[in-house]
Amino acid sequence: MNATSSVSSPDEEKLKKHFKVTRFIMEAGVKLGMRSIPIATACTIYHKFFNEICFDDYDPYLVAMSAIYLAGKVEEQHLRTRDIINVCHRYLNPGSEPLEVDSKFWELRDSIVQCELLMLRLLNFRVSFQHPHKFLLHYLLSLKNWMNRHSWDRSPIATASWALLRDSYHSDLCLRYEAQHIAVAVLYFALQCYGVEVPSTDSAENQWWQVFSVDVTKIIINNVISDLIHVYTLDTEIL
């Protein structure tokens, strides 16, 4: 739980690079019509891979493409390599025509598949993850019933927390924190943003976030939130 490690300049560069590539995964995922869970898996695979290995040894975009392909398999959302190649090629060469289906195309496809095998072996075939998404959605439903209907409807808490959760995959947050903690933190953050208070937080024996996860503490929540905010600062810096 060394959440906020000392941010040195090469580390910051690395974070930026990863942010860029994961944003590429996200964008490709949206264009491929991927659901949130496969995208999250793809990002987790990507982060895990570069946790194990020196960044400069592999082309991050190829790794990202293979991660997307592998995540599609793991999360049972069938993705066609041709679509992945097309979308990624278009991203890397904006405005270009789609690749012709020739030997170059097939070589590219082969390299994705080869890279997928490499990743699988490197990750010891452990590519199935417990994501915070499911927890968050259940939390949201429970909270919704406890809150006043109108204040719930007024503030897009579900949308905001969902967006925050998806965006959290731009960093390796998913590797450093437990899924439930991330879910709680994201929900907490969303409520804070809209200034929404959960009823009877003061009078109740347990805080709502304590209910959802027994071992979560205010410190963890704050760490996750500050890490998340850091992700968004990268966003503005890169743009």
Partner: peptide, 16 residues
Amino acid sequence: KLGLSESNPPSLIRGL
């Protein structure tokens, strides 16, 4: 149930 859409996922990242 919560009215979230997967086809147009929300994000606070400007590039997304």
